[in-house]
Nucleic acid binder design. Structure first.
Lengths: 150, 150
DNA sequence: CTCAATAGTTGTACGTCTATAACGTTTGTA
DNA sequence: TACAAACGTTATAGACGTACAACTATTGAG
């Protein structure tokens, strides 16, 4: 907060702090992968499929990869008995990926690791946490459309 | 905010929202790499070396990789004329990596891309932004020690 | 001086992810 | 019926990152 501190300067500083908090101090991606002995992309795929069955195409979009790699990932998860493929009733071209019971359990493990709030966040006093919740909701809500592509 | 909403539940929800904001909506790592036509790890290395010269060992710690890969990364940056190696005066085992002028310029590009605040953050009203700055400072400040290793 | 420890490099192997082309199957349309 | 489009798979090549072993040069302690 220097004398000439502009709104944009403050925003930049806040953004840097938030990035450091999420990416440097409490990035759980490695931990999630290690817990299931698989790469993070596979764990991420399983996490989403565990929430609800989806098509290969939808999964490809979530993983932000291409179709062939999604095949590889789902092949691997299927070999581990964590997901199953079935044909979409009504369009036999489409495959639906569903988590097995074991898959849902593993997905829940990933979810728990990712969602576990960092200690400093738990240490916030209730008023600050409530304020933060409201502001984060604003940020995320306003971001429905992805960032304009570069 | 359900009737039985606990502090921990709220924190978990806020954490998820913050993660989504940083990692899903405004992850700039790919953009940074593309801008310099190099992998993100190289861009990250350059960004830090651009701030201040450091030893290979320090750079290895920042990149969270091992020494051999740091050698590969610095070799590449050196081949591009973006950094230079020099011997540490006082300990000839140690090499100091310094950004050239071109390297500093490229580092600034990366820095600018990473630090550019997302539009929704700029759209916050000043009071909310100030509150957010204070809370983020608390979170990051309290996080000096890394998360207890798994 | 001797020797263990440190910093960095070289080489190798592997898992992971990206990207592209080609293919079979199925669908919907002309 | 013929044909273009969509969905998923197979195959391949290559960049990227991780991990480990072995090596040189240098330093500092005994």
């Amino acid at each position: 907060m220097t004398p000439q501190d502009s709104h944009a300067d403050t925003a930049a500083r806040v953004w840097q702090g938030m990035r450091a908090f999420v990416l440097e101090l409490y990035d759980r991606r490695k931990e999630a992968g290690d817990a299931l002995d698989m790469s993070f992309v596979r764990a991420k795929a399983l996490r989403y499929v565990g929430l609800e069955p989806m098509t290969m195409r939808q999964l490809t979009a979530i993983l932000a990869t291409d179709a062939p790699y999604t095949t590889v990932v789902v092949d691997d998860l299927e070999r581990r008995g964590l997901v199953e493929r079935s044909v979409h009733p009504g369009d036999r071209r489409v495959k639906i990926v569903t988590a097995t019971e074991a898959g849902k359990a593993a997905a829940a493990v990933v979810q728990a690791i990712m969602d576990r709030p960092p200690p400093p966040m738990l240490d916030l006093d209730p008023a600050d946490l409530a304020a933060l919740e409201r502001i984060i909701a604003t940020l995320v809500g306003e971001s429905a459309p992805q960032e304009p592509s570069t």
